[in-house]
Amino acid sequence: MPPKPNSSDQFAPRRAVEVLSPELATTPLIFASPHSGRDYPGELLRNTRLDRHALRQSEDSYVDLLFDEAPRFGAPLLRALFPRAFVDVNRARDELDPRMFSDDVPKHADTRSSRVIAGLGVIPRIVADGQDIYSRKLYYFDARRRLAACYDPYHAALRRLIDDARSQFGVAVLIDCHSMPSAGGAPFRAGEPRIDFVLGDRFGSSCDPSIVAETEDILRGYGYQVARNAPYAGGYVASSYGRPREGVHVLQIEINRALYLDERRIARTGDFETLRLNMTRLIERLVTSRGIEQRPPQAAE
């Protein structure tokens, strides 16, 4: 049997989230990095069967640093400080894997979602390369405590940023920033170039198509190969927050890690600063786009 949960405050990072805010908000754009957290809680490190390097395979490593100039252009950057292997905020709160727990999960839990079945629920069972994270089963109390400490503050901050943008500008445009393994950017067919960026808008349901098209044009102008919705169409944040008819647009960006990361060592390469410069240029171009601010809520049919 697993040891009973204790009251130690080592179960969560020192801070769960951070919002890098501009001195003055001048745009409805919001940037978010939900999977680049690097503060590994003691609870996770004590109970995992993996070393820290193996756990880090699930990170969108350093994506937050690629977009950290956003406040300079009047846009906030929200970033999770806890790791994705601990809590995944791009999942529904009730996507719980009953195989992970020694006791029962609530009846309302979504235990049959494709992500839970794959071991990638809100409390992940495996890391990105398929290895089991834990050497023992958890208690549901562990999950509930993590969600309160990490998941809830992240989504509270995200909702607040969206509400503030809508209140000030009439619209909110969330750029949800992620990275993908270089294998995910492999060409679909022999002879085609690798995919550098994947733009996910849930096949048109989470973001105005003109915002997606403008982002794609900017990236292509920098020489990148860009795909839409394949192999990544957008996760829980895009599907649950993206409501173009209500003035909330969510565009997920996946960046091929080969552009900036030594994936084996999880270390930034010499190309990191070039990519960061181009992401800063992307931010500036989007912030200064008149089309972004002229995306009012659409009237219902």
Rank of each mutant, 00 (worst) to 15 (best):
I253Y: 03
I218G: 02
Q225H: 14
R268V: 11
P231K: 05
S210H: 14
Y241Q: 09
G235P: 06
Y236W: 13
R243V: 05
M180L: 09
R228P: 01
G200Y: 13
D208Q: 13
L259G: 03
Q252S: 07
Y260E: 01
V237W: 04
R264Q: 13
Q225T: 14
G242T: 13
P193G: 10
P244A: 11
D217I: 01
V198D: 05
V250T: 03
G204T: 07
G235Q: 08
L199H: 12
D208V: 08
T269D: 08
Q225E: 12
D217P: 00
S182M: 11
F197P: 03
L261M: 08
Y232V: 00
R264N: 11
S206F: 10
A258E: 11
E192D: 14
R264A: 14
A227I: 00
A233D: 10
Y236A: 11
G204A: 08
Y232C: 01
H249N: 15
C207I: 07
L259E: 04
I266C: 08
Y232D: 02
L259H: 05
R243E: 13
E246L: 15
D271F: 13
I218T: 05
L259K: 03
Y224L: 02
A213L: 09
R245N: 12
A186Y: 02
R245G: 01
A267N: 02
L259T: 01
R202V: 15
P209E: 15
G242V: 12
G184T: 02
D196V: 03
Y260M: 02
M180S: 07
G200R: 11
F197H: 09
T269H: 09
I195D: 06
R264L: 13
G247W: 07
R268G: 02
A190I: 05
A227V: 00
G221E: 05
P187L: 11
E246G: 06
S240E: 11
E263R: 04
V198K: 09
Q225N: 14
A213M: 09
A267D: 08
S206V: 07
G191P: 11
M180E: 07
V248A: 05
A183M: 11
Y224W: 04
V226G: 04
G234S: 10
R228D: 01
Y232L: 06
N229G: 02
G242L: 11
R194Y: 10
S239G: 10
E214I: 03
P193Y: 12
I195C: 15
S239A: 15
I195F: 09
A227Q: 01
F197R: 06
V198H: 08
T215M: 13
R194L: 03
S182Y: 08
R202G: 01
A238H: 04
A190T: 09
G184K: 06
P193C: 09
I253L: 15
